[in-house]
Simulated assay, not measured.
Amino acid sequence: MGKTQKEISERIGCSQSAVSRHLSGKSVGRKKCGKKRCTTRRGDRTLRKIVEKDRFQTLGDLRKQWTESGVETSRATVHRRVLLNQKQRQKRLTWATEKQHWTVAQWSKVLFSDESKFCMSFGNQGARVWRKTGEKEMPKCLKSSVKYPQSVMVWGAMSAAGVGPLCFIKGRVNAASYQEILEHFMLPSAEKLYGDEDFVFQHDLAPAHSAKTTGKWFTDHGITVLNWPANSPDLNPIENLWDIVKRKLRDARPNTLDELKAAIEASWASITPQQCHRLIASMPRRIEAVISAKGFPTKY
Rank of each mutant, 00 (worst) to 15 (best):
F168Y: 05
E98G: 05
V152W: 01
T133F: 03
T97A: 06
G156L: 02
E180I: 04
W107R: 14
T133P: 03
L83G: 14
Q88N: 08
W130A: 06
V163Y: 03
V154D: 10
L62Y: 15
C141Y: 04
V146H: 09
F122S: 15
A175S: 14
C141T: 12
K87I: 09
L182R: 04
V173I: 14
V82K: 14
G171K: 08
H79W: 07
W102Y: 13
Y178N: 09
L142D: 05
G156T: 10
R172Y: 05
A105M: 02
S145N: 10
C167N: 13
V129T: 14
V154W: 02
R89Q: 10
V146K: 11
V129R: 15
R172I: 15
V173E: 04
K91Y: 05
G171L: 01
V163S: 09
L166H: 04
K109C: 13
S74Y: 02
R81G: 00
Q90V: 01
A157G: 14
A157L: 07
V82D: 02
K143R: 12
A160V: 00
K109R: 15
R80Y: 03
D61P: 00
F118A: 12
C167I: 01
Q90N: 03
E135H: 11
E98K: 13
K117Q: 08
S74R: 02
Y178P: 07
W155S: 07
V71Y: 02
M153F: 02
M158F: 00
R172S: 15
E183C: 03
Q125H: 10
A175Y: 00
T94D: 08
S159V: 02
G60W: 00
K64D: 10
I169N: 06
K87E: 09
G134T: 03
S177N: 03
V82E: 10
L142V: 02
G60Q: 09
W95C: 15
A175Q: 14
A96I: 00
A176I: 04
A175G: 07
W102C: 12
T94S: 11
